[in-house]
Amino acid sequence: MSIVVNGLAVDPPGDPRVSLLDHLRETLHLTGTKKGCNQGACGACTVLVDGERILSCLALAVQYDGRDITTIEGLAEGDALHPLQAAFIEHDGFQCGYCTPGQICSAIGMAAEAKRGVPSHVSADLGGAVTLTRAEVQERMSGNLCRCGAHNGIIDAILETVA
């Protein structure tokens, strides 16, 4: 078995203690995914597994053997940015940029969840189709913190691109 990262098959680590985050950064040198709190509180390490957003810091890499991982490095097509990457630039969705890879991967996963009809804490109607209002996006993105305070630009970029 192997882990597929951005379309490339790689070996899982020999030591089961290695997190998916450390495997990406330290072994595969994919340093786009960031280590913030390393305890599941900030969202900087968010990656997509089979299209679903997860926290790579709380994931043992061996658990993801056989799964398909997408990191921030896997989003652009050559020099053509993913539309969400372009929108983050357009809307000043960052200052220092440390939370940005996690924000963007998270937003892509969030859009897929909304499309499937997954409700959120602020959804008035549990049964209906999801409309990504500003309040919905804020709640659904609450797992990604930005200490620079660029949240307004981040939400604008997401609303323009995936809502």
């Binding site: 957003r53 926290l55 994931a59």
Partner: peptide, 12 residues
């Protein structure tokens, strides 16, 4: 469930 944790954590 939706009041707990974050979407990433609920997915895991």
């Amino acid at each position: 469930i939706l009041a707990g944790a974050s979407a990433q954590i609920r997915n895991m």
